[in-house]
Amino acid sequence: MKHLLTVLKYVLLLGISAALMWYAVRGQDLSRIGHYIRTANYFWLIVSLFISTLGYLSRAYRWQMQLNASRTPAPYWATYHAMMVGYLANLVLPRMGEVIRCSVLRRTSAVPVQVALGTVVTERVIDVLVLLGLLGATLALDFKTFWAFVTDKLLGGQYDALARNRTPLLLAGLGALVLLAVAAYTLVRNLERLRQNALFNKASQFVKGLLAGVFSIRKLDNKWLFLFHTFFTWGVYFLLDYLAFFCFPETYGLGWRAGLAVLTFGAFGMAAPVAGGIGPFHVLVQSVLVVYGLSREAGIAYALVVHGAQTLLVVLLGGISFVAVAAADRRSVAQEAEALSNEPLVSE
């Protein structure tokens, strides 16, 4: 039953991706989209992919700093390969890449999964904070443009209805707070009984290890270097989207503000729980570019090229890392077998 539910979940997510991709190209001239893609200047895309590779290397170094701070150090290349295998897995299994890369790191460097997962949670929290800051900056720079887009395009006539009648929203919020309070009270009242449960104790130990990884950021040896790699990584993401503007005559004249908007909303699309952000990324990026005056065909062509190039890069780098991890596993098994064969036989 559990496996069936898992399969159904991934089928549903795949269906959502397919529906969003259909929505992105619905009613458009496919030959025109193909023309945009065929005639693009891919030189700038190649430059952006080279820079993107530097971003992956920087992100792996940042993760290694967190692992060192959590007192579970790992070699740099083992950290990098585990991270890239996780990104590769995310293309097929949405949101499972984080768990998989922690499992890979446990095999290659004996880092406890819960500690590594805690560092990944911290990494995601920091990325969310940066993304929220970018969203604030994007909306502040072009507030009128995006406010009109949200009210007219996304909400349509629903915005006026919600503005006139806020009672359903207030009731929903109040109901959520009551349920949260009841759950907290029940947990506190039954805490002693739960502590006698073996499953609860195992979960507690896992959470403790998770928190050890989360709070590892407080023990960093060089917090400024950590911040540098954080902003460097996001700077790389920005350059990836901005340099891709030069691939198309339609986006050539767009400025850095448009690049910031594409980065922000594209990141939200990539964060969606679908394989590789397929669908949400394309719809959001296309919509942003339409806001800046492009046709829907030009917008989806840009999104397809950028996303496709990044996906191919992840497949290439992740595939190399997968082979490297598999080779390391084979060497480890061979060394263990050799060590066992060299042990002297003990006779009774």
Rank of each mutant, 00 (worst) to 15 (best):
G55A: 13
D221I: 11
W44S: 00
T167Q: 13
V290W: 10
K144C: 02
W44F: 05
Q64G: 14
A24I: 05
F268N: 02
T122W: 07
V182I: 12
G86E: 00
G269L: 01
S52C: 10
R124G: 06
V285F: 09
T230Y: 02
Q310C: 12
A326M: 15
Y36E: 08
A309C: 08
V99W: 06
L187V: 10
K223H: 08
A183R: 15
M21L: 15
E348A: 14
Y242G: 02
A212R: 14
V47Q: 12
L317E: 07
L180Y: 05
Y56W: 07
F322D: 08
V214S: 06
G266P: 00
V85H: 01
F226C: 05
V288Y: 01
T186W: 05
T264I: 10
W234S: 03
N222V: 09
V288M: 03
L227A: 12
R107Q: 14
K144T: 13
A89V: 04
L155I: 01
W44M: 07
K153D: 11
L313H: 00
R124T: 11
A24Y: 07
R164T: 12
V346M: 08
L5Y: 11
I217G: 01
D160T: 10
F149W: 08
D329P: 00
V306E: 03
A275I: 03
D241N: 13
L91F: 03
A78M: 04
F50W: 00
V262Y: 02
S347D: 11
A89P: 13
V99R: 07
V283T: 11
V178C: 13
T39F: 03
M96E: 11
V11L: 08
T53H: 05
L254P: 01
T264A: 04
A18H: 07
R38S: 11
F246W: 10
T6H: 12
Q286E: 06
S52V: 00
A183G: 15
F143W: 12
T122I: 04
P75Q: 09
K202P: 03
L141V: 14
D127K: 06
R59A: 10
G276V: 03
P94Q: 03
G86F: 06
L169W: 04
D29R: 12
A176C: 13
L284I: 05
T119H: 01
A137L: 06
L210M: 08
G299E: 02
V150A: 08
V291P: 07
G133D: 00
G235Q: 03
R95A: 09
G318Q: 06
K219C: 15
S103F: 04
V325N: 08
G253I: 09
A24F: 01
Y23V: 04
L135H: 09
L179V: 07
R218E: 01
Y10M: 12
F50V: 07
T79R: 11
S287P: 08
S216G: 07
N41S: 14
L263G: 11
Q64F: 00
R218H: 03
S31L: 02
G173L: 14
R106M: 04
V306H: 01
L180D: 08
T233F: 07
L180R: 11
R257Q: 15
K208S: 14
W224A: 05
